[in-house]
Design a protein around this nucleic acid. Structure first.
Length: 157
DNA sequence: GCCAACGTTGGC
DNA sequence: GCCAACGTTGGC
């Protein structure tokens, strides 16, 4: 069992959007970065849990928890010539881009990136590293447990 | 909207 | 296969 952090632009799919999807599931489409693809294709397992992060927005940070609910499969948008995510090199036999499906587990309180930076326990978290642009990163057991405790707190004083 | 830090592309 | 130029990400 492995933990992850997955960034989504709320303008594309927010935590509320996910909650309102049929079966509260969504294909994690549009990842066009090899490292992130490899995490989904090679390492993610059904049942893995992930932090749902809003990025490229006014208030970036943690908004919820989701679960990986499918094996890796080709990203469907790469075959659509009208999509921004179209990939001319992909064929149905040989897809370049792979992804998993993700299921809503719960909304959490918002934890801002500034708050996360205040905890020494999290100073090595991938998402907090300078220059990090990866939209999918592994989260260690320790980081996950610590964040779990933060989420149980009503409000941070 | 700026820009640092990456990632990708393509000429050589 | 090097590397300059260009493109993208995403916090600020």
């Amino acid at each position: 069992m492995q933990y992850w952090l997955m960034k989504s632009e709320p303008g594309e799919v927010s935590i509320d959007d996910l909650q309102n999807m049929p079966e509260q599931k969504v294909e994690w489409f549009g990842i066009r970065n090899y490292q992130a693809r490899n995490f989904m294709r090679d390492q993610m397992k059904i049942g893995d849990l992930a932090i749902f992060w809003h990025s490229s927005c006014k208030e970036p940070g943690i908004y919820g928890i989701v679960e990986i609910c499918s094996d890796a499969h080709p990203d469907s948008l790469q075959f659509d010539p009208n999509s921004d995510y179209y990939e001319p090199k992909s064929t149905t036999d040989k897809a370049v881009w792979w992804c998993v499906d993700v299921k809503f587990i719960k909304k959490t309180r918002y934890i801002s990136i500034q708050e996360l930076r205040t905890y020494p326990e999290l100073e090595e978290m991938r998402v907090l590293q300078k220059g990090n642009r990866l939209s999918i990163t592994p989260v260690t057991d320790k980081e996950w447990q610590f964040i779990g405790k933060l989420l149980d707190q009503k409000i941070k004083s």
